[in-house]
């Protein structure tokens, strides 16, 4: 796809066209609740915005442990939200390159240059990378999901230049139980660069700029608790009727008028929009409004 995930802007356009309003730079500080019903939100600057419904796309921990006061929630729900596992496990390294890196293992002009590349040639290496993560460190020999989007869409970089996107596992939310430091972040980036350079001679010399996101940056920039990109681990105990927590797997919450629509809810993370779509359907059902205008899921063949 050209311009990466730019299609979300189309979604924004559609929202506006349907009469919606988007406000940016409007961090929500609190959900306003009166008599157990959500009435609106309070922005970080203190502004109060009222609405009939509040639908939170933030993760379930952020929503119910930060935006909603404890007293509004039943104990058992709070306990389950606290037990929700949302430990980050990945990081991202975006690298601006002066020229296209070479991979001697590939034939010249191989279509693999435009593909998703991995350097981990055994499951043991991946498993050992995970051992580091379990011990509270980033992986010394990580496994990368690497691609060079500019081989498909040259407009993403100045002419002749390239951009490399590395999805990196593993990066724990904390290092040895303490917060990430800048030095940790640089060490994490170095593990990535070192691995790519092993397979691509001269790689370091091509690097113009780097943008490194550990779980710390992911949480700070996007608000994903503990930097978990799926807004919650996708393990059996947090899937289907258990997602995000037992008893509240259908986008509703203990607070009337407050719904969830993020990746913390079923079916989970990944750029697919399914939680949002399903949430909308449930909300319309609560409002006794039709859902005929929603495109149906495909027939199962």
């Amino acid at each position: 796809m050209r311009a990466g995930h730019g299609r979300r802007h189309q979604g924004a356009g559609r929202l506006k066209a349907s009469g919606g309003t988007i406000r940016t730079g409007a961090e929500v500080d609190q959900v306003l609740i009166r008599n157990g019903k959500a009435k609106g939100v309070v922005l970080a600057g203190g502004e109060e915005i009222y609405g009939k419904l509040v639908i939170s796309n933030a993760d379930v921990k952020r929503t119910f442990l930060k935006l909603v006061e404890e007293k509004e929630l039943p104990d058992i729900f709070l306990r389950r939200v606290r037990n929700f596992k949302i430990r980050g496990s990945s990081g991202k390294v975006n690298i601006a390159l002066d020229s296209l890196p070479e991979f001697p293992a590939l034939p010249k002009d191989s279509p693999a240059y435009r593909a998703d590349m991995h350097f981990t040639d055994s499951i043991e290496r991946m498993e050992r990378a995970y051992d580091d993560r379990k011990a509270g460190r980033w992986s010394a020999d990580p496994f990368l999901d690497m691609m060079i989007p500019t081989t498909l869409d040259p407009t993403m970089a100045p002419p002749g230049k390239h951009f490399m996107s590395c999805f990196v596992q593993y990066a724990p939310p904390k290092i040895d139980g303490r917060d990430w430091t800048d030095a940790d972040r640089d060490g994490f980036a170095e593990s990535v660069i070192a691995q790519v350079a092993q397979y691509s001679p001269g790689f370091r010399d091509r690097i113009v700029h780097m943008e490194v996101r550990t779980p710390r940056e992911i949480e700070a920039e996007v608000g994903l608790t503990e930097g978990n990109i799926f807004q919650g681990e996708l393990t059996f105990d947090q899937l289907l009727f258990n997602r995000p927590v037992p008893g509240y797997a259908q986008y509703r919450s203990p607070v009337g008028g407050l719904y969830m629509c993020g990746s913390s809810t079923h079916p989970g993370g990944g750029v697919m929009g399914a939680p949002g779509r399903n949430a909308a359907a449930e909300i319309l059902r609560d409002l006794a409004k039709p859902t005929l205008h929603m495109s149906p899921a495909h027939d199962v063949i």
């Binding site: 058992i76 059996f236 105990d237 037992p246 008893g247």
Partner: peptide
């Protein structure tokens, strides 16, 4: 009971560590 059954189903395939 409802809540205990929910927890049973949640933890059934969990890892013991968590």
């Amino acid at each position: 009971g409802k809540e205990d059954m929910r927890d049973f189903l949640r933890v059934l395939l969990m890892n013991v560590y968590d």
